[in-house]
Design a protein around this nucleic acid. Sequence first.
DNA 1: TCCTTTCTTCTATTTTGTATAGATTGGGTC
DNA 2: GACCCAATCTATACAAAATAGAAGAAAGGA
Lengths: 110, 110
Amino acid sequence: MPRGEHLGEFEQVVLLAVLRLNPDGYGVTIRAEIEARTGRDASVGAVYATLDRLETKGLLDSHAGTPSPTRGGRAPRHYRITPEGRTALDEARRMLDALWDGFEPGAGSA
Amino acid sequence: MPRGEHLGEFEQVVLLAVLRLNPDGYGVTIRAEIEARTGRDASVGAVYATLDRLETKGLLDSHAGTPSPTRGGRAPRHYRITPEGRTALDEARRMLDALWDGFEPGAGSA
DNA sequence: TCCTTTCTTCTATTTTGTATAGATTGGGTC
DNA sequence: GACCCAATCTATACAAAATAGAAGAAAGGA
């Protein structure tokens, strides 16, 4: 198996959050989405580092936004998922589904 | 990851394979199960290292098996998932499901 | 004995994940 | 118009997880 082929756990989470917010998500809202959906409070640095890595891999791309918040603030950097990113996500999901098959979550018995 | 809170990507895969093989999986068969189900050819070292880490965390436990293969061979170490392991798996799945919700895989563009 | 088979351990290295601190930007305030 | 403040991103350092493959160990047969 060629190296660097799989999405890390947090990479999947971030990619999914970007997908949900498409195409306007940026650092702060992405982090908020993760927390809102999963209850997981990721650090700011963790989010940006992962976003950056994902962009380097071509799974995400970004462009500067216009700074128009109610008061002050630096221009946000918006992220969009690329077709490659979407494919990687589907692939990761397919893999997990194949392993879960027949063992639905919560089915403690057996 | 604050003190063993989240499962890594490969940790999830290995845990799931152990669950499927419960309670008789061991290194070699676990690796084979992963390959059979996902097509992913994980290295031997990756599997054992992960198994070990998972056991240290209490998500898996192991016991020596009896060596009864058709011909020779060292005794295998069997792995079973613990209730904590099962809980961690359900939690990881719940998190991913929450993020996928409304964006079923393969649904390409809106 | 020693060879073969099956399975596990070990060590080194790269990739991912996390935290903290700080730089940058633009608007408000006086 | 200099200064402060809040929102956002960047840099750096380090910890944990993932990878690769060679080496070691135990059991049975020739």
